[in-house]
Design a protein around this nucleic acid. Sequence first.
DNA 1: TTCCATGCAAACAATTTGCAGCAGT
DNA 2: ACTGCTGCAAATTGTTTGCATGGAA
Lengths: 128, 128
Amino acid sequence: MTKLQREILSVVKDSNDHLTADEVYQKVKKTMPTVALGSVYRNLNQFARDSLIRRVVRPQGPDIYESNMAPHNHLVCVHCLRMKDFEINGLEDYIRDHSSSPIISVNLTVNSICPKCEAALNKKNNKH
Amino acid sequence: MTKLQREILSVVKDSNDHLTADEVYQKVKKTMPTVALGSVYRNLNQFARDSLIRRVVRPQGPDIYESNMAPHNHLVCVHCLRMKDFEINGLEDYIRDHSSSPIISVNLTVNSICPKCEAALNKKNNKH
DNA sequence: TTCCATGCAAACAATTTGCAGCAGT
DNA sequence: ACTGCTGCAAATTGTTTGCATGGAA
């Protein structure tokens, strides 16, 4: 593994957040200023292929990369678009039990509204 | 509603399949040869905003538009990438019951392998 | 010297947008 | 004449790819 690869991987691993390729690029650039965005993409995708990290496609905005490899789902705030991991107990089994098709994997995102945005909206509504 | 809008809408409605913007464009072009792809996008998106149709974002390839507005999920064949509607009974309730966040909507795609591709793969494997 | 990862830039795919002109009212 | 939808083309966004090169083994 090269220096750049170690750097990229540790940026993703160290962040409990979900990072876009560009965010990873910005962080890596702090220690390796000559890094190219293309190289970041190349390595992130390679890591994802090797199952070291996971690439998550979002309906809006760029894809994000995350280090949490355990099967889990994503809660997306419809207001700020921020994403949070969450897990639903036995979901995959539930789906398996209610489907006749052979299931390889499931991909679930739940649209929700995060506490912060909800509070902000409530405040706004109470004002007038 | 304009002629083009009626045409686009009926193309989506008449197809039980899922169509990409370009596929809709190709179909509309048969009756209205001067139509522009941009106009197709504009109208499809407007219809989606008005909840006349639904736009579905796929991890790979272009978005698709579908007329089935009932809450349902998608089965994606990992081999041919074709998509099929399917419904899981009580899924949203299950998730609601197992989650503490306010749930607006649920988006589930299941990776699977369709009968056709499975048959083809079996045949191939048996050959040698 | 060999080889592969890199930086760089160009290509690419999907989609959106600005704008002038035309159609319908 | 006014309005707004359309065609067209250019711009945008996110991502991938080809290629020459430079650094590590």
